[in-house]
Design a protein around this nucleic acid. Structure first.
Length: 462
RNA sequence: UCCCCGGUAGCUCAAUCGGCAGAGCGGGUGGCUGUUAACCACUAGGUUGGCGGUUCGAGUCCGUCCCGGGGAGCCA
């Protein structure tokens, strides 16, 4: 029996006998002959209070040794609690200990630990209230993502993790090789790749977008939800070397449709958490970020703002804010600029569209002014850019010109070009950083708490 | 990679001007109580991140390296 089930149907289980299994969070002794044991089984935030009488139980020895971290199974009767803080409790008839946890060496205490410390014990931090709550929210968001797309006829596809494309993004990428590193350094540069597993240089993917386009131009609407890798040496609270990305891609869909999709998407999945992870959201609101619940409700209830890059530049130029970086048409927006727009000017999510052609990738559709492309960045208060997307360039000639201008090899991307030669169609899509969404939804300050086992420069433990 | 801050008991932190290294929690022992971050008493626990320097004397000042955090860039 899972504890959440018990709490959900309290009346139904009252005076009934049940078996609950989980981990001891804390134990309070009463020498009058009672032990109070709080058990958590991960099904929900709340602990179940176990009442264990010493008298005649034969468990006095067990109860004395029971400490935080032990795993136990308790059989007993569900009764109404006379104490404050819980409506029901479990009156133990039988207690089985599956595993002990030496209190002298078990690292988790009943008190608050720093996140830095908990990261060092990622195998045990999952047993804390915070990480348990993050994990359940992350799970609920994942489920909501699939629900959202499935309900709208999008097909879930899997794009490759190992790729030979190395110029999709500007960032550094991870090499994938079976070669002995000592041989690589001593070898002739080009010839060595022919001896490698794939017979050519290969990397971990930085995006499944280009492959998703293939399936959008055949199944109509698809989405990916998988791991993505960036070898960028960035040490911030918003970056991971290995993270999960959601990338919908839809045919016969222009930038306006794309914006609409992004807005409905974010509202739907955050709304699902507000409704169905209410207890965990309330926990974060109480202990992590007091304004969290109000912020999330605001996101769900507000309509997102959409402005063009040119309008954004105007707003920034008019502002009295002291920016470190100059505001000039043609420069990319800096974090401080994005924060100002979404947190101070509009105080809600803002989509910025139609960026200068020169600062965006080759695949984005060139607008009629020939100076901008149909790009969109969705900015969220508190974390900045959460979604980046665009309408893709579907016109063969324009795409070839873009590739020429950006120095992209038409040989290497022959297949991508052929999608425009054979039955091309307008299409759009975007990418959403999943951990940033988890971060936003939980209010946690560091993205390293948004994923069970964070990979960052110098850290690949567990 | 750059800038800033930090590293003291198992954990969270304090230590005045450079002058005997401390508290709370956790652990152990005992007491008390339908308890709720339980409470009370006692107790054990330290190469102050490493190396070098200044000084009668360094947790504290200087140099250097390592590690961590925050911010920036890059991005999702």
């Amino acid at each position: 029996m899972r504890i959440i089930e018990l709490f959900r149907k309290e009346r139904e289980y009252l005076e009934k006998s049940v078996l609950v299994r989980g981990w001891v969070r804390t134990k309070r002794e009463s020498k009058a002959g009672i032990s109070f044991i709080e058990v958590n089984d991960g099904s929900c935030l709340r602990n179940l209070q176990i009442i264990a009488e010493h008298r005649g139980s034969g468990y006095q020895e067990v109860l004395e040794k029971l400490t935080t971290g032990c795993s136990i199974g308790v059989e007993g009767k569900v009764v109404a609690s006379p104490g404050k803080g819980q409506s029901i409790e479990l009156h133990a008839a039988k207690i089985e200990v599956y595993g002990w946890a030496d209190p002298a060496t078990y690292p988790l205490q009943k008190k608050r630990h720093s996140f830095e410390f908990l990261r060092q014990i990622a195998h045990l931090r999952a047993r804390t209230n915070t990480m348990g709550a993050v994990t359940r929210v992350r799970n609920r968001l994942s489920y909501a993502i699939h629900q959202f797309f499935q309900e709208r006829g999008f097909h879930y596809i899997q794009t490759p993790i190992i790729t030979a494309s190395d110029c999709e993004g500007a960032g550094d990428i991870f090499r994938v090789t079976t070669l002995d590193p000592t041989r690589i350094s001593s070898a002739e540069s080009e010839a060595i790749y022919q001896q490698d597993f794939f017979g050519r240089p290969t990397y971990l993917t930085v995006s499944g977008q280009l492959q998703a386009e293939i399936y959008a131009l055949s199944l109509g609407q698809v989405y990916t939800f998988g791991p993505t890798f960036r070898a960028e040496n960035s040490n911030t609270s918003r970056h991971l070397a290995e993270f999960w990305m959601v990338e919908p891609e839809a045919a016969f869909c222009d930038l306006q449709d794309n914006l609409q999709l992004a807005e409905s998407f974010i509202k739907a999945i955050i709304g699902a958490c507000l409704d169905e992870s209410a207890e965990d959201i309330d926990f974060f609101t109480r202990f992590v970020q007091p304004a969290l619940r109000a912020n999330l409700e605001h996101i769900v209830n507000s309509s997102f703002e959409t402005i063009t890059y040119t309008q954004a530049i105007d707003l920034l130029k008019k502002s009295t804010e002291n920016f470190t970086f100059p505001v000039e048409w043609g420069n990319d927006l800096q974090a401080e600029h994005e924060r100002y727009l979404t947190e101070k000017v509009f105080r809600k999510p803002v989509s910025i569209i139609d960026f200068p052609r020169a600062i965006k990738p080759f695949y984005m559709r060139v607008n009629d002014d020939h100076k901008t492309v149909a790009a969109m960045d969705v900015l969220m208060p508190g974390i900045g850019e959460i979604i980046g997307g665009s309408q893709r360039e579907e016109r063969l000639e324009v795409l070839l010109e873009q590739m020429r201008l950006k120095g992209i090899s038409t040989e290497d991307y022959r297949w991508y070009v052929e999608l425009r030669e054979f039955g091309t169609a307008p299409h759009s899509g975007f990418g959403l950083g999943f951990e940033r969404l988890v971060q936003f939804t939980t209010g946690l300050g560091n993205i390293r708490e948004a994923i069970p086992f964070p990979r960052t420069p110098g850290h690949a433990d567990f």
